[in-house]
Design a protein around this nucleic acid. Sequence first.
DNA 1: AAGGCTATCTATAAAGT
DNA 2: TACTTTATAGATAGCCT
Lengths: 199, 199
Amino acid sequence: MMPKLTKGRQKIEMKKIPDERNLAVTFSKRYSGIFKKASELCTLCGVDIAILIFSPTKKAFSFGHPCVETIIDRYLAQHPPPSSSISQFLEFHRNANTQELTGQLANILRQLEAEKKTGEELDKMKKINQDRCWWEAPIDTLGVEQLEQLKMAMLELKKNAEKQAERLKVEAANRKPTIPISDSTEADAAGPSMSRDMD
Amino acid sequence: MMPKLTKGRQKIEMKKIPDERNLAVTFSKRYSGIFKKASELCTLCGVDIAILIFSPTKKAFSFGHPCVETIIDRYLAQHPPPSSSISQFLEFHRNANTQELTGQLANILRQLEAEKKTGEELDKMKKINQDRCWWEAPIDTLGVEQLEQLKMAMLELKKNAEKQAERLKVEAANRKPTIPISDSTEADAAGPSMSRDMD
DNA sequence: AAGGCTATCTATAAAGT
DNA sequence: TACTTTATAGATAGCCT
């Protein structure tokens, strides 16, 4: 009998692999193994699957059938139910007041105006990453898809608007404006206040 | 030597399993196998993963580390790049005008006020589906998480506001209002117009 | 439908090219 | 660096309870 040529596959401990090189190799093998399994599951059982993985180097890997975005939309549509979101939104604004909200929206609009002036730059970026998925989406989710886009845009604007609002708040304090912008501007930013108000 | 007790594992053809019963069993075994693999990959390589599966019966199964929503947010943040979304948003509004937008936002606010009056009903719904994920989210993505919620809420409000706007438009036409509400209200709804305007 | 068994198939850890 | 090989660990098809 020949001496064993290799040790073959060995059992490994289920903890984070210490050696960085080995970790990279294992990640590469295993994530592709998982994608293959997912692909088989799609074929064998005719199901829809999306997998999102952020590698050790923070790069995103994804698998999707028929399309990652489609699956995500379908998931979001049922899971964090819209009614839940809206009630949280209302709860938040019950504690604040509508005048403040008006103020913030006004700021968003002002910011919108400003953004329009630099819109050309954004147009270029848009050209670069032409969206690829819309036309693949089943008709019944197309509306949601679009709304998603709108929402992402609103979030971007909102962030910018908050910075703007911070500036305006300082100005406002010096002039006693008709629509005061209070500290709620900060509460609405990335802080934990809203998230903790939930239960 | 004993006669074989079973045939053991047999190779199967990579096609949709015809027998419905067998398919259900295979789905159950395989999806849990994939989740186990994913879990191991998390542990071994310290990566973040989300998996969404819609079963043959359309039920959603998900795996997420640290949390499905977190991963989805991170993915959406990079993939259909925000700049793409925002530029589409801007392109859309370049064709409309800011006055109209102002009008719509005003309607949203009006709707908000109305919603507050029926807020109790929404509170009940909120109780039913307590969100489970916020506090699990890593600090650096919490802000996005919240903003996601806000956005979903805005979208809900927007839909309602559009119906409201439709009514107001009719009123407005009879009184020559300071802020005219034009047909863009419809274009902004869930129809395909915006999505097709992309390229 | 859910869980267990066994024989076999598949994935993959380690080492080699 | 990445592909190939080897041998074993792990997943699972078919069957049964």
